[in-house]
Design a protein around this nucleic acid. Sequence first.
DNA 1: GTGAAAGCGCTAACAC
DNA 2: GTGTTAGCGCTTTCAC
Lengths: 343, 343
Amino acid sequence: MPGGQDKLTRTTVRTITDLARLAGVSPGTVSRALAGKSLVNARTREKIVDLARTHGFRPNQMASGLRRQKTGVIGVAIPLGHDVRQQISDSFFMTLLGLLADELTDKGYDLMLRRVVPDSDPDWLDRFIGSGMIDGVIVIGQSDQFDRIEDVADGYRAMVVWGNHQEGQRHCVVGTDNRLGGRLAAERLIAAGARRLAFLGDTGPMEFAARFAGAQDIAARMGLPPVLALPTHLSPDRASEEIARHIAQAGRAIDGIFAATDTLAALCLTQLRAQGLRVPDDVRLIGFDDLPIARQTIPALTTVRQDIAAGAHGLVDLLLRRLAGESTESLVLPPELAIRETA
Amino acid sequence: MPGGQDKLTRTTVRTITDLARLAGVSPGTVSRALAGKSLVNARTREKIVDLARTHGFRPNQMASGLRRQKTGVIGVAIPLGHDVRQQISDSFFMTLLGLLADELTDKGYDLMLRRVVPDSDPDWLDRFIGSGMIDGVIVIGQSDQFDRIEDVADGYRAMVVWGNHQEGQRHCVVGTDNRLGGRLAAERLIAAGARRLAFLGDTGPMEFAARFAGAQDIAARMGLPPVLALPTHLSPDRASEEIARHIAQAGRAIDGIFAATDTLAALCLTQLRAQGLRVPDDVRLIGFDDLPIARQTIPALTTVRQDIAAGAHGLVDLLLRRLAGESTESLVLPPELAIRETA
DNA sequence: GTGAAAGCGCTAACAC
DNA sequence: GTGTTAGCGCTTTCAC
């Protein structure tokens, strides 16, 4: 191979201008050729594309983004309000995140993940949006940030939130009908023979509050005593202790437990067993989410299924529509009972 | 409030230049003031910072990144080689991802997540690196991409990989000593009375292959028959079927099962039970990872613990050092036996 | 301590 | 079809 050519081949080509020089055309043409957009002579294009490949050149997305005023990146924020630690490792959110990554990749977007602690950074949402790094944002879980999200929603359209839907809210939300889910759960517990119901989990977060409220609806309608709230944290270690205490105290006074999540339900199952209560004979138990673990407990967990895949799809679909200028309604997904062995 | 001032207050300030105009200084000064770096008159700085706050201004990170040739973003790639689906929802990787997000946030970096399917995009790593969007990359899991990662490692230093360490490899890796973990597992099974061992899971991925090899080491050393490989997929549904079949076929010919992950072990436990085999009396069982589920099965799962938090910390620490120009050794973490009830 | 000016790498008018 | 030019919003010399 002649020296000159060899040297050319070895030239590092970092910019579109380098490539243009090699191809003997102008940077503009290279840009057009690589973008595959406007008309470029087929031969020229081929030559440029070839050259780009052999040199492993890819256009700098930062520069392109700056110029075009769009980044090709969607931000995904997970606010950790109620229960700072552990929430991000919560299986449900993690599964949703995985599916979101899939959906966004499919649509040609990258995903920028940001875990935020609103208490120590009240400005989290504006900062994320204002960073200039993202074309839109998906917020996973309203946590205790409902109002802050509402505030932002008026001035920023490229946002969709996973969470609970509230009459008249201004931000676009995708989520399960938690209240209905709560009703289904309570109905199932009652159908399985329970009369004195309890709700296991923190009722602070809106989603959980709605699940709790749904259960109360049914208890009231059936003339049963109000559902007892048994608050816990979300982190497995603390929750286990708290559940043990709850069962020790309230144990025989209740015969049906609606756990806010499957994770909590699984923990609860272990504790019930440890304290000699049989499930479902002494106590009926129902979870929420229908995570893989629900099939793996013994006895297998009856639960209220959320369609996570549909949720992820909906979040991305709505966001892209909003980016395209459409205005969109919120999407409320129906929960579904998955009846197994615990209720 | 006088009209003029009102108008000023309402002016949208999107750029540093807008802000400069308001403050009556030059863009350069605003930049300096906001960056908090070089010397700016305290009064001027205060005024600028105030103005920025009241107008909710934040500098555009794309522009800043372009100019400074660094983005403040670390890419996290999850290659899905062996078993395309489900791997991203694999609890272990997800937990690691959550912890990585924490660590990176702490260090002031953002995290860009990319799920890649090497089979359909052989160029995934170069593309990610060459995108200009990230300052460095963390690869979670070598999958079947060991060689490709090796190829890249020579020319790109800002990369750290979670995975298995191989003598003489060129890329910087953080991971558990899987072979040692395999040895611990086999030793434990044998100590619990097993003599005919099996390894449950795909032995294709390097991590798993090393675990398997570790178990073989011990079987050989103890003069036992070779460890039987019972391949499965990672997705719970397929795995369950496959496990059921394995047990039906090999069931009584083996008395100790080393599962490649806790998830598989939990599934296995269910199937063993379904087929009337008692654990640990008929069959001893040991998992790998020590995920939360290991404590929740009945009986609770004996397993080999990986220190995920240390892993996440190590990955970020090493990557930042490499970014700073240091050259770093790989980090091999010791696994630890968590003895519970299944072996 | 601050302003002016150049330019990061790319794209999109606008010429020709 | 292709080249030229003018920025996208920011940082950073270099003057003063």
